[in-house]
Design a protein around this nucleic acid. Structure first.
Length: 584
RNA sequence: GUCCUGGUAGCUCAGCUGGAUAGAGCAGCCCCCUCCUAAGGGGCAGGUCGGGGGUUCGAAUCCCUCCCAGGACGCCA
């Protein structure tokens, strides 16, 4: 409808140019928007006001001329000039109500579009280090990433969801060493646990399973484990040096094979845990990409950059001249000790992603990564690709509140609320809904008490209740043995004349636009906002008018409308992976 | 210091490429179940859109500047 009006306005504009009223060279963008106030019709355009200046006429005169030049169309019942020069379009009732038939015909496909057809996109999200369970901070990235992927999918994009597993590097060594130390404690060794080690209870659990796996075969006396290790922080030393020395000793004492065993037990236990948490959260990935699998490619990529002349040596290290591509300073890719940096892995990873043929790669990152994006763009361009291939969505942190108190979380100290605890406390539906209902650029205050409350305060229930209410009406119809004939109802849509019905029809027609906007703008909160409004429309209607009326024809029409609203509520909730209960 | 993101009703937030009288929810006050689920609906009240300039027919939205809050700025991962 919107496109139709735009075409008509374009035709009218062309006519005015021919008649000389508007200069040939003016190229205004033709904007048609939905109106907020029904008295302004269904759609409005500001075209006349934009033409007023170049044409040197008053906006209202231009508007009148445009309207005269508009092609005839039966779908538009009235066109008016309003206010300073808006052109308001009133859509014919038959067109407005036809949306019901569209919804029922398309079912779960209603709202889907083909704007992204033929494009392969990757959405990478969560990608938390497998050093501990997912906490509520990761939850937001998980929920947003999953929903954005769903939305893009609905907009016709071919989407791959990927989790980048950081299964290499120092943090993982610290994890493996932490597990081993706990294991040693289980076997009676006495020592004080490093302050920079992983201290959560889950480390104990993993150590326990390592014990039942390996028995005492991995035990070494504490004295040798701590031999020549510099003091820890509490003893006045450096905690980083302390833990690094412990890692080195672990690797030396255990030998490569045994060390790797401990390492993998830790990694796999935690990764399995993460996978389970995510799947219970209805967050699913197509691909778990291992950082270790990239290791051979890292130096290849470094060579590639070197051959292209983007690297130089300084102070024993190899630097990438990222400032050539807009970064604020150059970055090290190979340290003076010969080890490649984490950034070097990321370069290889970018290269890998692009070689896999994605048209666009979306990174859903925590806002703390923002200093990182400039060098990522730089790397992408240095590798010979357009920076447009990368998009970073920087998610602001989520703060948890309980009883008015802000909860703290930190993986290292082991004091955090896990995503599992959150789910147990508020349920998956509320958690998923709350995570996406604010725009991602905004800090999210997650009120646990509100999410768990079964009251009208809770927006999740509000939307779900609308769905359940419709189901209840449908059940009641059967109980009362009232007839329902969908074809007859669709034929009688003209009977829907109440203002609440008109509102619902407009809202239903808006849904595909919302999905498209939410998908292309990566803004899931558009969808939750829409669902709230639609639910509100339904509740208002429900209170104002009875569906199961004796008038056969009217009842059939209203039932069709109810079915359509139910379908759209369901479609929207599916995109955020929230259930649509039939009974509440 | 540089760079991000925010600053809209008492609180939490919407506000689509600049558009018509700035919208919801919660909190407050009033009303609505002999009627399809009251986890609901309707109404009232509540705003110098952080301050100040500017662009425009028209600014919460764009530009400049200042103030405030949170975050990021390693040869860490």
């Amino acid at each position: 409808m919107k496109a139709l009006i735009e075409r008509h306005l374009a035709a009218a504009l062309a006519a005015l140019k021919v008649s000389g009223l508007v200069p040939e060279d003016t190229q205004p963008s033709i904007a048609v928007t939905r109106t907020r106030d029904p008295s302004h019709g269904d759609f409005a355009s500001n075209l006349a006001m934009m033409l007023a200046k170049p044409a040197k006429k008053s906006p209202r005169d231009i508007a009148a001329a445009l309207i005269d030049a508009l092609p005839e169309n039966n779908d538009i019942s009235k066109v008016e000039i309003a206010g300073p020069g808006f052109i308001n379009f009133f859509v014919a009732d038959s067109v407005a109500s036809s949306v019901v038939a569209n919804v029922l015909e398309q079912g779960e496909q209603y709202g889907c579009s083909k704007v992204g057809e033929g494009q392969r996109w990757q959405v990478e999200f969560v990608s938390a280090n497998p050093t501990g369970p997912l906490h509520v901070g990761h939850g937001r990235g998980a929920a947003l990433g999953a929903t954005m992927a769903n939305l893009l999918n609905a907009a016709g994009f071919d989407v791959q969801r990927e989790y980048y597993v950081n299964d290499a590097g120092r943090q993982m060594d610290i994890l493996a060493t932490s597990v081993w130390l706990r294991y040693l404690s289980h076997h009676g060794e006495q020592f004080s646990f490093p302050s920079n080690g992983y201290k959560g209870d889950y480390i104990n659990d993993i150590a326990q399973s390592l014990s039942s796996d390996a028995g005492t075969s991995l035990v070494h006396p504490a004295a040798s484990v701590f031999a020549a290790v510099p003091d820890d922080e509490p003893a006045g030393g450096d905690k980083e040096a302390h833990i690094d020395a412990l890692v080195a000793n672990a690797q030396r004492l255990l030998g490569e094979t045994e060390y790797l065993k401990v390492f993998d037990v830790g990694l796999n236990a935690i990764l399995d845990d993460i996978k389970q948490d995510l799947s219970e959260f209805d967050v699913n990935f197509d691909s778990w990409f291992s950082e270790r699998s990239l290791q051979n490619n890292v130096m290849q990529c470094v060579d590639k950059l070197d051959k292209a002349g983007h690297l130089y040596k300084k102070g024993g290290a190899t630097w990438f001249r990222s400032t050539d591509f807009g970064d604020e300073k150059d970055r090290v890719v190979v340290r003076d000790n010969g080890q490649s940096t984490y950034f070097a892995s990321d370069i290889a990873y970018i290269n890998n992603k692009i070689e896999r043929g994605f048209d666009k790669v979306l990174y859903v990152f925590g806002a703390d990564h923002h200093g990182y994006t400039a060098r990522m763009y730089a790397a992408c361009e240095a590798l010979g690709h357009s920076r447009e291939k990368l998009t970073f969505l920087l998610i602001q942190f989520a703060n948890l509140y309980k009883g008015g108190e802000k909860l703290q979380m930190s993986t290292r100290s082991g004091s955090f609320v896990t995503i599992r605890e959150l789910r147990d406390e508020v349920g998956k539906d509320a958690a998923r809904y709350f995570y996406v209902m604010r725009k991602y650029q905004q800090h999210l205050d997650f009120d646990l008490d509100l999410a768990v409350s079964q009251s009208n305060d809770n927006p999740v229930f509000y939307v779900q209740y609308a769905h359940a209410r419709i189901c209840s009406v449908l059940r009641k119809r059967e109980q009362l043995n009232m007839s329902f004939d969908q074809a007859a109802g669709l034929a009688a849509l003209a009977r829907l004349k109440e203002p609440e019905e008109a509102d619902l029809l407009t809202q239903l027609a808006t849904y595909p636009e919302v999905i498209q906007r939410a998908a292309l703008g990566h803004e899931p909160h558009q969808l939750t906002g829409y669902l709230r409004d639609l639910a509100n429309g339904l509740h208002s209607y429900y209170n104002a008018h009875k569906t199961l009326v004796d008038d056969d024809e009217l009842r059939q029409a209203r039932l069709c409308l109810m079915l359509a609203v139910k379908q759209v509520l369901l479609n929207g909730l599916l995109l955020i992976d929230v259930s649509a209960p039939e009974v509440m």
